[in-house]
Every structure is written in C-alpha cells, then in structure tokens.
C-alpha cells in the first residue's frame, strides 16, 4: 500500500507551476549583476589608476585625494549641489502652483492638464534641443523677443557666459521637471475630502488658513516623496547639462556626471572618472533609504 503511493508521486525537478519563481530568481540575479556587482566592482576600479587601454595598479584612495585638490572637481561639486538644490526648490514651488491651478474648476481642464504635463513626457533630448535653439545667439527667438521689447540692446550669449549658462541649464531642468511635481501634487489634492474644507468654511477660515491647515498637511507625504525622488534624479542628471553646454563655458556648468564622462571617455582616465561618478553614491544611498522608509512605512 505504502509502496504504491510513493511510486505514484513523481519527483520533478522542473514544473510549470514554479515558472514565475524561476523568472523572478533569474531577473533578480540579472539586476544584481548589472547594478549591484558592477557598482562594487567599480568602487574597486576607482582605487586604481586604470586608463582606457592601459594597465591598472592599486593606489588606494589616491584618486579621491587628488580629486579634492582639483579645481574643476570642486567646481563640479559646488554646481552639483546648487543645481540639485535650486532646481528642486523651484520645481516644488512651481509644481504646487500648477497643481492648485489645475485643481480649480475651469473649462477644458482635462486638455489643459494633458498639455501641461507634456514637457515631462517628452524625451529630454527634444526639450534640450528646443531650448538650446531658442537661446541661441544667431536666430534665437528669446534674444529677438527681448530686443523688440527693448529689454536688451544687443543679443545675449546665454550659453557663453558662465553665470547665464548656469541659469540656463537650471531653467531647462525646471521646465522639464515641474510637471512631475504638478501631477503628483494634483493627485494628492484631489484625494483631500471636500468635507475638510467645508468644516474650514464653517469655522470661518480664510483661504490662507485653509491652505496652511488643510491643504499643506494633507499633501505633505506626497510632497516629501516627490521632492526626494526628484532630488535623486537631479543629482544624477547628465543629459540636460551635457546637451546644453558640455559643462562649459570654462567648466562653469560641470556637475559630477558630466565631469566624470569627460574624464573617463575624453581624457581616458577611466579610474578617475569612476571616482568622480561615485561621488554622488553616498547621497544617493541616503536618499534611497529615506525614500524606502517613506514608501514602505506601513
């Protein structure tokens, strides 16, 4: 009896029932190899003096120490910080205004909303090209408009002057990133129950008080999350700056990512480039941890 039962149970090493688990396992391994192990490996590379096509020797923290004494590295450190801080702050404010405006009952709201979110959906390349062309000193529409309205006398080299170039790349980043704040905050606004505002009305709250004591606390969670996510993306931004200015003029708009690209692929100092790109790793890890805590707090 017992013997019959055992023989009827088939021992199978593979079953279609487990296909999802197998795919999950392979996918996790794939991600670990391409993201986890490569990161650790490249931390290793950054402690050598490897060049493209050259040999490598262990030099410990040599790259990092030498970088700290390097003017363009410190410049990139400054501008990465300013770029991330200022653009995220401006995007947050503009995104909030955008969300509140879109939450008002206006005719054609659905279409307006879709149009306003377009900059976020378009490829970065498209938006950067269009802004770079508008800011151009030959045939650029912005200079032309400023000149016919008598604000300036002669064309401005928007991307030729270090300070103007910094503001220009930040403006493009803001233009592209504001809708992400707008959509997310709008969703949060729409989730606020109307009764709260009715209570506010009964108690005689003015619109500022309603904003301060109802809107802000109710949207806080989403605002925090979106700000953190945008910060991590902005810290790692490459395309906007590289396509606008390539870090110029006179290295004024370099951030870590563009400087690391130039160091690794144009000066061929691979290990040094890795060290530069790794500079945002500690901040990214901190941000990731906070984001995880915020999302998975239940």
């Amino acid at each position: 009896m017992k013997g019959i039962k055992t023989s009827s149970v088939k021992v199978r090493f593979f079953s279609w029932e487990y296909l999802p688990l197998i795919i999950l396992l392979l996918t996790t391994l794939y991600l670990l190899v391409f993201q986890g192990i490569t990161t650790i490996w490249s931390l290793g590379v950054s402690t050598t003096n490897k060049t493209i096509g050259g040999n490598s020797k262990f030099i410990g923290l040599g790259n990092y120490i030498r970088l700290l004494g390097n003017g363009s590295y410190r410049g990139a450190m400054w501008f990465t910080a300013i770029y991330a801080f200022l653009t995220v702050a401006i995007k947050l404010v503009l995104g909030f205004v955008m969300a509140i405006a879109l939450n008002k009952p206006i005719r054609g709201r659905a279409v307006i909303r879709a149009l306003m979110f377009l900059p976020w959906a378009l490829p970065t390349l498209t938006s950067v090209l269009s802004w770079r062309w508008m800011l151009g000193d030959v045939g650029g529409i912005i200079n032309h408009l400023l000149m016919i309205s008598n604000i300036i006398d002669s064309p401005i080299g928007w991307l030729g002057d270090p300070n103007l170039a910094r503001w220009s790349v930040m403006m493009v980043n803001v233009w592209r990133g504001t809708p992400f704040f707008g959509i997310s905050i709008l969703a949060a606004l729409q989730a606020i129950p109307n009764e709260l505002y009715e209570v506010g009305d009964i108690e005689g709250a003015n619109s500022f008080q309603k904003f301060r004591f109802i809107t802000l606390p109710q949207t806080m969670g989403v605002v925090l999350l979106v700000t953190l996510i945008s910060t991590i993306w902005t810290l790692g931004d490459f395309s906007v700056i590289w396509l606008m200015t390539r870090g110029g003029p006179a290295n004024s708009t370099h951030v870590f990512s563009t400087l690391s690209y130039i160091t690794a692929f144009q000066n061929l100092q691979l290990a040094r480039g890795v060290a530069i790109s790794m500079s945002i790793l500690p901040f990214s890890i901190i941000l990731l941890v906070v984001i995880m805590k915020q999302i998975f707090k239940k």
Partner: peptide, 9 residues
C-alpha cells in the same frame, strides 16, 4: 538608482 553612477561600470 541614478544611471550616472552605473554608466562607466
């Protein structure tokens, strides 16, 4: 995780 950390690796 930012791609600019991973692109050289």
């Amino acid at each position: 995780i930012p791609r600019t950390i991973l692109f050289i690796p």
